[in-house]
Design a protein around this nucleic acid. Structure first.
Length: 260
DNA sequence: ATGACTAATAGCATTAGA
């Protein structure tokens, strides 16, 4: 079974590329981020026509997450994180599909830092950690996948000094990410490529793609039961180089499963 | 240095992204 996370940077602008990627790579489960579309204008029928059921949590203009499943309908468990009743941003959705609890996240960017956006990011990470701890306590096979907006280590970026002052690699952001892992989650790409050097994002600006000036911020975290089933992981770089691509590439894992 | 790119919204520029 193949499970992927893909920040599409606007699902309406990306629709041909998204359908193309779904058709070519046939992932079984997909977490999407940055839909940038209200629920009313989401192209759900186009995705269904490509063979995918889904649960959707849109928002006009910004944010927005979804979980898709090939030939199946994910069963929604929760949307949004507890801990801040004022928070209306569409950044979290959780569903059961193929016997796995899937949490799709779009973690706040947090720039500029310091400031209220960075405070929101760190608070959001603690809210996520509480939910993640509850998932582990349930002992269901679980996965948290999405755009974490955290560069975990210096070898997860082409040049650490380039982003030294950015919210994505502040010590507080990294510490919060490490606390998640410390609770018992496995960073699948890190396990597959322990030496780092794997990128999932390349800025549109300054020829970052052509220079391979990227970094890794899209992650799939596995509960212990799923970590035992991990057989491979990677990044669909090819699609990042195509016309009208997202600035992120889809990032995926394979799990040992009857769907293999 | 707050730019370079891109998407969305409501335009004839701004916000947000990372």
């Amino acid at each position: 079974m193949k499970i992927a996370t893909y920040n599409v940077n606007g699902i309406k602008a990306r629709l041909p590329r998204l359908i193309e990627w779904l058709t070519e790579t046939q992932p079984d489960v997909v977490c999407l981020q940055e839909l940038k579309s209200s629920d009313e204008t989401l192209p759900i029928k186009d995705v269904e026509a490509a063979g995918y059921g889904g649960v959707w949590h849109g928002q006009k203009g910004f944010n927005g997450v979804a979980i898709l499943a090939r030939g199946a309908a994910p069963v929604e468990v929760q949307r949004g994180l507890e801990g801040d009743p004022e928070d209306v941003q569409s950044r979290y959705i959780e569903a059961d599909v193929f016997g796995i609890r899937v949490a799709g996240i779009y973690l706040p960017n947090g720039n500029p830092q310091p400031g209220p956006k960075f405070d929101y990011k760190l608070a959001w990470m603690e809210r996520l950690r509480k939910r993640a701890q509850a998932l582990l306590a349930e002992e269901v096979p679980a996965l948290i996948a999405g755009d974490f907006n955290v560069i975990p280590n210096d070898d997860d970026i082409y040049k650490p000094t380039a982003m030294a002052d950015d919210a994505l690699m502040q010590p507080e952001s990294r510490a919060a990410y490490r606390r998640l892992l410390g609770d018992g989650w496995t960073d699948a790409l890190r396990r597959r490529y322990p030496a780092g050097g794997v990128w999932t994002y390349w800025d549109y600006q300054a020829g970052a793609w052509q220079r391979d000036a990227g970094f890794r911020i899209d992650h799939l975290l596995l509960s212990p039961a799923l970590a035992d089933r991990l057989t491979d992981a990677g990044v669909d770089k090819d699609h990042r180089g195509r016309e009208k691509a997202s600035d992120h590439a889809a990032t995926w894992i394979r799990l040992h499963d009857h769907r293999d």
